[in-house]
């Protein structure tokens, strides 16, 4: 999810039909520059080198989203579609369009990970290592993190906490498991961004759900975490 403006220029994006590192390449209608959608950066054309600002988004199930946001709007769709990629998801041998293989992989290439950046270092949790419906408290380089995994085990929210003491002062709301409550009374929804909520010491971080091989194409020096 990106804010689609660069300075004063508003951009609209289309699908270029190209792939870079096995991922979608967008183009903008205003300058015809090519943009890598994973990194949000123009890789060719007049805007080459410019980056789009990310906007926090959540990936979860429709059921969980509707429960957290009963008044949500939904992008209109023509009918009940299944994913085109279900068979692709299920086939561990199919990777990208070229079907190549990874050598000496730390994780199964087709396994899904939750990837994020912290102080310039890339990290990834295997989704299979995260328990649905729970928060976990791993520590990366002395920076406590709070993770929320939805009931389907597919949607992940990641929060950075100021320090360990602050982390210990937060607890899950037993009535609403998608919320955490701090001792100071501040409430965070784990399904959307914090900026709409007042107070507290949690900062929402960008987290990307991806195939390990696709993430690894962009971030080969990723440290794999297993809480």
């Amino acid at each position: 999810m990106y804010a689609r403006d660069i300075g004063d220029q508003l951009l609209t994006f289309g699908v270029s039909g190209r792939l870079w590192k096995d991922a979608l390449v967008m183009y903008d209608h205003q300058t015809n520059s090519l943009w890598g959608h994973v990194i949000g950066k123009a890789i060719d054309g007049p805007l080459e080198g410019h980056s789009l600002e990310t906007y926090p988004a959540t990936q979860t199930t429709w059921k969980a989203w509707l429960r957290a946001h009963p008044d949500t709007k939904v992008l209109k769709k023509p009918k009940l579609w299944r994913s085109n990629y279900e068979r692709y998801d299920a086939d561990p041998r199919r990777m990208g369009i070229h079907g190549r293989r990874m050598k000496k992989s730390q994780l199964p290439p087709k396994s899904k990970i939750a990837g994020f950046e912290l102080n310039g270092q890339m990290f990834a949790f295997p989704l299979s290592s995260l328990k649905p419906g729970q928060t976990l408290v791993p520590v990366v380089d002395e920076a406590p993190l709070l993770i929320y995994v939805d009931e389907a085990g597919q949607g992940v929210s990641l929060w950075r906490v100021r320090d360990r003491e602050t982390l210990a002062s937060y607890s899950l709301d037993p009535e609403r498991p998608t919320q955490v409550v701090g001792r100071d009374g501040s409430v965070y929804s784990l399904l959307d961004q914090s900026r709409s909520l007042a107070g507290g010491d949690l900062v929402r971080m960008q987290v990307v759900i991806a195939y390990w091989f696709g993430w690894h194409n962009f971030h080969p020096l990723t440290e794999v975490l297993k809480p």
Binding site: A57, Q59, T60, T61, W65, D192
Partner: peptide, 8 residues
């Protein structure tokens, strides 16, 4: 169980 991207 449909996966969504949600934004506020």
């Amino acid at each position: 169980e449909e996966q969504v991207i949600g934004v506020v």
